[in-house]
């Protein structure tokens, strides 16, 4: 009731503040001056102009899902994951990619394993995972097909392919923590940045780019810097290190306590800097 009476008692329009205390507060609040960082306007203007240019071009990130390069990268990652982890998918993908080897059963890799005993060169065939005899495919029509068992590696099945992993998780955590801007930590600002980059056979991450932004440009930049510094155990194929594209996420958590770096395609958390 009291509130209702107060409201009706106020004159229509009510632009001015009559109480001296409130008038002083009103004056004080008007006096607050907020200094903008001197280069902020120019930086933001440049960022907007770049964004506008991207929107105008056919290479806009907003049409990114249909860009062939992105699709190709996504297909490579999916193909690798599917081929390496699920036996049924391995068979299916091998059937798609290697029609000549359709009868060879589950396949991991096309590999020159042995030379034909007759002297014909460049005998290639697929190394099956099961005990089915491999089907030969030669580049020299005159040479006879090799015996099934000759195609096997002498020491049994080849080593399973492996995916990249973080070489030193503690070091990786320290690296990410070092890149996490202190001001953002103090402000309680965190987020997840998903990146795509190439892990070379030497374990070095190259050309990282942000796939899913955290929404905070400085966090994205920190994640990119960290990705370049983290060292990885490279992927292996037939026991040899090979390069591969990797999707990798970094989660910046201002209030997290302790963390465990997770393998590829997962996130790892970092603690705040004390």
């Amino acid at each position: 009731m009291t509130r209702r009476r107060d409201r009706t008692a106020e004159p229509p329009g009510f632009p001015e503040i009559r109480s001296p205390d409130l008038a002083r507060l009103d004056r004080d609040l008007r006096e607050i001056v907020i200094e903008e960082r001197s280069s902020f306007a120019a930086e933001l203007r440049a960022e907007l102009a770049a964004e506008h240019a991207r929107l105008l071009s056919a290479t806009s990130p907003y049409s990114g899902w249909v860009r062939p390069a992105r699709l190709t990268a996504a297909a490579v990652v999916l193909l690798a994951a599917g081929t390496l982890t699920v036996p049924a998918a391995r068979t299916f993908m091998a059937g798609l990619l290697l029609p000549a080897a359709e009868q060879a059963g589950p396949v991991t890799e096309a590999e020159p394993v042995a030379a034909d005993p007759s002297g014909a060169s460049a005998v290639l065939y697929l190394v099956p995972e099961t005990g089915e005899p491999p089907e030969a495919e030669t580049r020299d029509d005159a040479s006879p097909p090799p015996e099934p068992n000759e195609g096997r590696a002498p020491d049994g099945p080849p080593p399973a392919p492996t995916l990249p992993d973080i070489l030193d998780r503690d070091q990786a955590r320290r690296t990410v923590a070092k890149e996490y801007p202190v001001s953002l930590q103090e402000a309680g600002v965190g987020g997840v940045v998903r990146m795509l980059f190439w892990v070379g056979p030497d374990g070095v991450a190259e050309t990282p780019e942000v796939r899913n932004s955290s929404g905070v440009p400085r966090l994205d930049q920190a994640a990119l810097r960290a990705a370049r510094s983290i060292r990885f155990q490279p992927a292996t194929r037939l026991g040899l290190p090979v390069g591969t594209w990797v999707q990798f996420s970094i989660r910046f958590v201002p209030n997290a306590r302790g963390s465990q770096p997770a393998p590829e395609n997962q996130t790892f958390e970092i603690p705040p800097i004390n």
Binding site: L48, H52, P217
Partner: peptide, 17 residues
């Protein structure tokens, strides 16, 4: 903080654009 204000202001104009 100023840093957060800058980030959000950037976000506002990018969204508007």
């Amino acid at each position: 903080t100023r840093e957060v204000a800058e980030d959000i202001t950037s976000e506002v104009f990018l969204k508007a654009l």
